[in-house]
């Protein structure tokens, strides 16, 4: 049974009716259902879907990005990576299940694939620490990327985390240092790096896997310096309004959708999702992602590594939105 978000409720009704009709028409030899009824309802559902999903608010997109049925990194790896071998551990302290990585082939090209990993069942969610990485996760990611550089393999990262884990051990083992070191070192790796936000891009924990030559976002993913909940808690602590109103307000203020960030030129492109979101048709979504990866690699693989790094620096360097008034 599908999981429907609040704003999908009208769709839930319709889709349940379509499914019921379908069952009837296949189960009963003779049926008094108008033959066109299913088609009519499906057409209506399609319209409703495009109406709902083309007009999602930023907060609704946030909920889509966190949808419990949304495909995660390992789902995409299973769908588009051939001969995947997962590699483990940071060689310093441990193996962080909240970040997975390994080597495999996409469209015949061997490359490293690294991403945040959330869990689906309660047991798995706990095992994956809800996709919140410890320093070991970032250090594992960097180890694999350096391995990729030595063997001249491209890197693809999938970003999907609410943020780096705020815990005692994480602080003791240098959460900040681990993220900072990734940002610094990845900026100089002499291989093409493509980063794709597939769900939640939560602050520094997401950024640690985002430095590269291309940054894409799925249509219903988000990327933000702070969660709407965190932002609302800071700004409107004493507000008497219903809580979700403040979340919605915060999401609007933060401008955290793929469309916002494309307009700001912070990301390179938006990968559109199947009607109703990635989880409604994961295979189609996975194929689109694979197409984006191979298309980007066609260009990046041909670029001289020195030029690649210079260009990567230039891309980061210009992010600012500043004015300089001149001496006063």
């Amino acid at each position: 049974m599908s999981h429907y978000l609040e704003f999908e409720r009208p769709l839930e009704d319709l889709e349940n009716r379509i499914e019921a009709l379908r069952r009837l028409s296949t189960n009963e030899m003779e049926s008094d259902i108008e033959p066109d009824e299913v088609n009519r309802l499906e057409k209506k559902a399609k319209e409703l879907r495009s109406e709902i999903f083309s007009g999602l608010t930023r907060w609704q997109k946030t909920l889509m990005a966190r949808h419990p049925e949304r495909p995660y990194t390992l789902d995409y790896i299973n769908m588009i990576v051939k001969d995947f071998v997962e590699l483990h551990g940071d060689r310093r302290f441990g193996d962080d299940p909240a970040i997975v990585g390994g080597i495999g082939r996409i469209s015949g090209i061997s490359m490293f694939i690294i991403g945040h990993q959330k869990g689906r069942s309660m047991k798995e969610r706990i095992f994956r620490n809800f996709g919140q990485s410890n320093p070991e996760g970032y250090r594992k990611a960097l180890r694999l990327m350096k391995l990729a550089e030595r063997f001249k393999k491209p890197v693809v990262t999938f970003i999907d985390t609410s943020g780096a884990f705020p815990g005692i051990g994480a602080e003791e083992r240098g959460q900040a240092e681990a993220i900072a070191t990734n940002l610094m070192e990845i900026s100089r790796l002499k291989i093409p790096i493509i980063a794709i936000v597939i769900g939640e891009g939560g602050s520094g924990g997401a950024l640690a896997l985002s430095v590269g030559d291309r940054l894409y976002m799925l249509e219903h993913s988000i990327y933000s310096v702070i969660s709407p909940e965190g932002c609302a808690a800071i700004l409107w602590k004493k507000g008497g309004e219903p809580v979700t109103d403040n979340f919605s307000r915060a999401a609007d203020a933060l401008k955290l959708t793929a469309n916002d960030l494309k307009a700001f030129k912070i990301i390179d492109g938006i990968i559109s999702e199947p009607p109703g979101g990635a989880h409604r048709d994961p295979k189609a979504m996975a194929k689109r992602i694979a197409d984006y990866i191979t298309k980007a690699l066609d260009v990046l693989q041909e670029t001289d590594p020195v030029k690649l790094i210079e260009e990567r620096y230039r891309r980061l360097r210009k992010i600012g939105s500043l004015t300089q008034t001149g001496p006063q």
């Binding site: 993220i179 900072a180 940002l183 933000s224 310096v225 912070i266 992010i319």
Partner: peptide, 9 residues
């Protein structure tokens, strides 16, 4: 917002 986060990178 994201302009800030990207300053880290």
């Amino acid at each position: 917002g994201m302009f800030s986060l990207m300053q880290m990178a």
